[in-house]
Amino acid sequence: MDTSIWRPIIYLVCFMAFAGLNAAYLGWCERKGAGRIQRRTGPMEVGFHGLLQPLADGLKLMTKQLLVPEGVDQILFRIAPILAMIPALTSMVVIPFSDNIQGRAVELSVLMLFALASIGMIAILIGGWASANKYAVISAARAVSQNLAYEIPMLLTVITIVMITGSMNLQDIAMDQQGGFWHWNIFRFDKSIFMPVSFLIFFICSVAETNRAPFDMAEAESELIAGFMTEYGSMGFGLFMMGEYLNIVVGACLTTILFLGGWSCPFGLFPGVWWFLIKIYILIFTFIWVRWTYPRTQVYKLLNLSWKILIPFSMVNLLVTAAFIKVF
């Protein structure tokens, strides 16, 4: 009984700390990455190489007045940032970081992640609408139509993986890929010759799902000011921001587990949770790298990409995988 009480508490504290640190320090990483790519230094002033910058930013956000503009929907306006944060935090519970580090082994964890992501979508919609600001409403509509459009290829790709493994449990999916990189789903040519393409599709979709550049239509500064966050200040904005970064972490974790073998080491050396962390941070770096490489696309091009390229490709991959599994 003792262990059953303490285990969740320890996990809760650790995951909260992990999530909080990530949410805070990914902002720093992003600014540093953007700086390096543009041959600047990024934040340098607060602490060694700006390492205390996230703390300073957090303090600033927390001490600012929580402004609720006139004419907004009082209740929904306050609920939205919380709703944006909660699903991202909750998703951490089902993610297996290693074969024995997982908050709760849920049988349908893949599905659960997507179910939680849909709450995030509601948060954006509510936040955008409650702001009573035309830019916020346009941005919310864009964000949600984009999320809906990209959820389809993403789910189709996930179904491919689920078919290969025969389970919706992230733990099982990762276990299935143990031992050398040739067992990873991305290189499983015996299941489908298109697995790398499938990985690419999934990665593109996760960039789009997290509303990041080049798919950041929702907060296209040049047209929409700050999108659905326009009317938010202080910690309301902070929560949206943290939710966004946490979504990136969750996306990277999911990509790692589904395609890159979870915590398995490429060559069978030193198995452990660090391989998982290395992989997710490489993916997160790629997120940052992509963001500072490509200019923003247009809404209709974005939707065309999903409907005309990603969905047919993932559909074909699904059929090919089904055929391969049936034949071999």
């Binding site: 599905l111 997507f114 939680l116 949600v144």
Partner: peptide, 17 residues
């Protein structure tokens, strides 16, 4: 999960749209 995914994630949002 399907209830969340379909009703919250799609139906409610489509109604909002």
């Amino acid at each position: 999960m399907m209830q969340m995914l379909i009703y919250v994630g799609a139906v409610a949002i489509l109604i909002a749209f």
